[in-house]
Amino acid sequence: MREFSSTARAVAWRSLHITFTNPALLAPALIFPLMFYVAFAGGLSSVGDLPGFEYSAGYDTFQFGFVLLQASAFGGVFSGFGIAADFERGFARRYMLSAPRREAIIVGYLLGALGRAAITTSLLTVVALVTGMRPQSSAADVAGLVLLVALTCTAAMLFACGVAMRLKTVQAGPAMQMPVFLVLFLAPVFVPLDLVAGWVHGVATVNPVTALMTGGRDLLAGEAVSELLVFGTAIALAGGFAVWALRGLRSAERTGS
């Protein structure tokens, strides 16, 4: 157990240390959500006036619900890029060689991803609040949001980690990013689910991200949340991708790192 936590802490330390000494590395994880927030919350606010668009905390907050999840998920995906780069450059060998329990490597990368997601989502929240977003969350809602962000980041990171450990090259970047990008945009991004038209409506209805996004928006508006659906979905996703990531680790061990 002591060895496990020692490995995990060492791996997490490196991720975070590199981030703090090179803040520019956070830029992509921050620029995309910010850009989306500015463009959607700023440019599309009249969409909030549509008949049938019912959301009490305003269009800014509605879009923040999307962007917050996006930043969390992309934080996880960008960690996957780091893992792939470590395997490609051979740095992962150092971890594989010195870790008595190799599962701890994944946990370490995950802690690093969560740390970075905490920074980007906090910055994003500050920008949104300063530019006029007015959420109606209680303290309990905020705690729920933090948990949701953490679970989303965890699920995305474990997904990307599984891909990275199987393919072991930075060329795998799109294979990590595109699916996450797709499931995020195939959720109700611009309007509530009821107002989404056509085939996207059908896809969004069964897309698990819809539950997370709707839940996040409800928490931002201080409205009742179906905890079981929202957090149950998030935990199920994180759990499923944990298995995926562990099998990725086994695949990396089998094929040589």
Binding site: S6, W13, R14, S98, P100
Partner: peptide
């Protein structure tokens, strides 16, 4: 930093 990291990895 590499050496510290390795020391920590090795417990």
């Amino acid at each position: 930093e590499h050496l510290r990291l390795q020391a920590s990895l090795q417990g």
